[in-house]
Simulated assay, not measured.
Amino acid sequence: MLFIDPENTPDFKRSLLNAIVAPRPIGWISTVDPEGRANLAPFSHFNLVSTAPPVLIFSCNAPADRHEKDSLRNVRANGEFVTNLVTWELRNSMNTSSIDAPYGTDEFALAGLAKAPSRKVRPPRVAASPASMECKLLRIVEIEPQRPGDTRSCVVFGQVVGIHLDPAFVDPGGHFDIARTLPLTRLGGNQYASVGPLVELLRPSSRRD
C-alpha cells in the first residue's frame, strides 16, 4: 500500500484528494453583486450538513488572480445565494459557467441560461434546473494556509429558506426522485459522471421487538 505524508511530500498533488473523495455533488451557486448583476459558478466542494435546521456548505480556494472568488465576494456583500442542481443535460452549460470571467460578468448569459426569480432572496435561479435552494448566509469559516504553497479557503454555511422543485420529479408521496434527474457529479481531474446502478439497503438495527 502506497503511503503519502502531505506535510512531508514536496511535490504532493492536491488533486489526489479530489480523486479520492468522489463522486462529489456540484453546487451551482448563483449570487448577485451590490449592483444587482448576476453571477453563476459551480463548486464541487459542496454538500448538505444538516436537515433541521436545513444547512448546506460550499467551499472555495482563493484564486491566483484576485483576493477571492466572485461568488464569495457577493455572498459577503449580500448574505444570500441559491444552489441549483446540475443535471447531465446541463453539463455543458455548467462547464461554460466555470469560465474565469471578469467581476460583474453574467455567466447566465454566457451559458445561454434563462433566469427564474427567487422568492426570499435576490439571486435568481437557473430556470432549467429541476431543483434549487434559496439560502441565507449563516457564517463563513476561513481556513488559513498551514505551509508554503497552501491557499486560503473559505467554507460558506447557508441556511435553506426556500426550495423549488420541478413537479415532474416529485412522486405522489412528496419524495423527490433525484435518480431520474441524472445529477452530474465531479470525479478527479476533468472527469464527471452521473448515477449508475442503484441499490436500496435497509439500515440494520440492534433493537429486538
Rank of each mutant, 00 (worst) to 15 (best):
K120N: 09
P23R: 09
S71R: 01
A77H: 02
F46S: 01
R24V: 07
K120H: 13
S59Q: 07
A128K: 05
P54H: 07
D150R: 09
R37Q: 14
T96R: 11
N190V: 07
Q191D: 12
E142Y: 06
S205C: 06
Y192N: 04
L48P: 00
E134G: 04
R73N: 10
S132V: 03
T83W: 14
K69I: 02
F108Y: 07
G189Y: 11
E107T: 03
L17A: 13
F46H: 01
D11L: 11
F3C: 13
P34F: 08
N74G: 10
V75A: 06
S153N: 11
H45K: 01
K69N: 12
E89R: 14
N39S: 15
L56P: 00
L110T: 00
L2Q: 15
R203N: 04
F46L: 05
S129L: 03
M133D: 01
G174Y: 06
T151K: 14
F169N: 07
V82D: 03
K115G: 01
F157M: 04
A19H: 05
A179C: 05
L137G: 03
S97L: 04
L56C: 11
T51E: 14
R73M: 12
W88Q: 12
E144C: 13
V170I: 09
N84G: 09
A193E: 14
A77M: 03
D65I: 04
L184A: 10
T96P: 01
Q146I: 14
S30M: 02
R76F: 05
N47D: 05
K120G: 00
V49G: 02
T185K: 00
P172Y: 05
G173V: 05
A179M: 01
D33E: 08
P23C: 04
I143N: 11
A109N: 08
I99E: 11
L16H: 14
T87E: 08
P34H: 09
R91E: 01
T185S: 15
P117E: 13
P23N: 08
L165G: 02
T105P: 06
V199F: 11
L90N: 02
V32H: 05
L110W: 06
P42G: 08
N95W: 03
T31P: 02
R14I: 12
V161A: 11
G174K: 08
T87L: 08
V75S: 08
L187M: 13
L56W: 06
P34S: 11
R37V: 13
L201P: 06
F157H: 07
R180E: 13
D11I: 04
Q159H: 08
T181F: 08
G104F: 03
S194F: 06
G173D: 14
A131T: 00
R152P: 09
L184V: 07
V160G: 05
P145T: 12
F157N: 01
V86Y: 04
P102M: 03
L40R: 02
N18E: 11
V121E: 00
A101N: 07
S30R: 02
V141G: 01
G196S: 13
L202D: 14
R66I: 00
D171C: 12
I29D: 02
Y103C: 10
P123G: 05
P172T: 12
E80G: 02
E68H: 10
L182D: 13
N78L: 15
V195Y: 09
N61I: 03
D150I: 09
V21F: 04
N39K: 14
V170K: 07
A19Y: 00
D171I: 12
R152D: 00
S50I: 00
L187T: 06
